[in-house]
Design a protein around this nucleic acid. Structure first.
Lengths: 241, 241
DNA sequence: CCTGTCATTTTTGAATTCAAATACTTCAAT
DNA sequence: ATTGAAGTATTTGAATTCAAAAATGACAGG
């Protein structure tokens, strides 16, 4: 996270360390490691063909971002997110979307708007064809484009950080009620429209609300899933992100 | 930073690693290392009495938080913040304050309000006596208390993360125009009042605006300072956080 | 006197090593 | 058969080591 954590969006020649962090983050976000499972240092070392030192450095960073948790003398585990965790996450993302909307309206170029409209159409096509994976991919691209249009690297970095967690959840929750998908499309239409008109307050509010719906959708999925396989689940500790 | 960068607020027995990260963060925030200067690994190792491995792990985390930057094969440097960086930072913090205000109004307990009012009085005393250091310390405590009252650990962690950078700047900018201080006091009065009345929209807006003023104050200071000692300054690269 | 090249020293990044803590296996006792 | 204890193996966390890269400094040539 970073925050959190925040990670850099290096223009630099890209160090090995940054590479490893990125690769490992993707690997986790894409769901190759089950939530709650331990992170197999040894295996990952040979997978990435590095020694334990750089891998462990990457683990510390990802722990700071909130993707994994470090248990003293017991290694790293893929974090499990309770519904409360997810609501907290989305509350913060909503705040970031709020500022992103305002700033984007003020700063976005006509070209960038055109690009977003193009992506919106592309997403619509995937929606019609029920190509879920592609739909989500373009969806993410649109949101990132709006955030980037705010022209604030700090915002982009923080947003990407929190979003990596949402994406990880989304990878598990690959199917969503089709009604929700329709709602999401409509919300996106309004968002693109507000952006086109550069209606700052309206866009900020729309994005805020859109995130709220998204949150409900993810929570719903997680609730269902946790009912389903609660038998072999580690009791979910509501840890701070 | 995260994105944050985010750091955990462990209830766990507190690992050595987390300790080191915290200690090193404080050390940097408190301004013991000049902006733009290199981070002396060797010295810090003996200062904290650890080997390079855990120290370097901590450096990676702090780099992700945005406090330092890692130059490939050239070690770590204390980040310098341009005015643009600072504006970006505050834009994001404003967003977090916005949600913090809303949530705090909805969730804060009467006791917590009383505690904040008490701190407000304490800060006022320091203001009257022109005890700057104490004033800032209590100021920080109030803001953190409001954010914590939102009852959202993700928010608290992200806020703390971004704030550590602001605090670092503040440590350099230890003196502020006294008129600005008066303004800040008045803004705080309004904030505490809105919180007492649990006036959510009002509080969110007040905190948003308060951050804007704060941003201007810090920018002003940085501008002055960079004019002053521009001679020995490394050219400030406007790096992404 | 300044500049550019080459050798030396230092610092960095990453692999390896080592001690301590945890997990696992075996075996015995109830 | 299940549980508990003891010993072994594995994993973890951190120090040390090692090769490569960069900084420093000496020296020659302009």
């Amino acid at each position: 996270m970073s925050a959190g954590g925040l990670k850099l969006v290096e223009s630099e020649p890209a160090s090995l360390h940054a590479d490893i962090v990125g690769q490992l983050r993707d690997f986790i976000v894409e769901g190759h490691l089950a939530p709650g499972s331990r992170v197999p240092e040894r295996e990952l070392c040979e997978k990435f063909d590095i020694s334990r030192t750089p891998l462990r450095e990457a683990l510390k960073v990802l722990a700071a971002e909130g993707l994994i948790e470090l248990l003293p003398n017991r290694g790293a585990r893929i974090r499990q997110f309770s519904e409360a965790d997810i609501r907290n996450l989305f509350e913060v993302i909503s705040g970031l979307d709020f500022v992103a909307g305002r700033l984007a309206c003020a700063r976005i170029t006509d070209d960038a708007i055109a690009a977003i409209e193009k992506m919106h159409l592309e997403m619509y096509t995937h929606y019609l064809r029920r190509e879920l994976a592609d739909y989500f991919r373009v969806n993410q691209k649109i949101h990132q484009a709006i955030v980037d249009a705010a022209g604030n690297p700090v915002l982009s970095a923080n947003y990407a950080n929190l979003n990596s967690i949402v994406r990880r959840l989304r990878y598990s929750a690959n199917l969503v009620g089709r009604d929700r998908l329709g709602d999401a499309m409509r919300e996106h239409e309004q968002i693109v429209d507000a952006l086109r008109r550069r209606s700052s307050d309206e866009l900020a509010l729309l994005m805020f609300e859109h995130m709220r719906s998204k949150c409900e959708a993810v929570c719903e999925y997680v609730r269902d899933q946790q009912q389903g396989d609660s038998k072999d689940d580690i009791p979910v500790a509501a840890l701070p992100l």
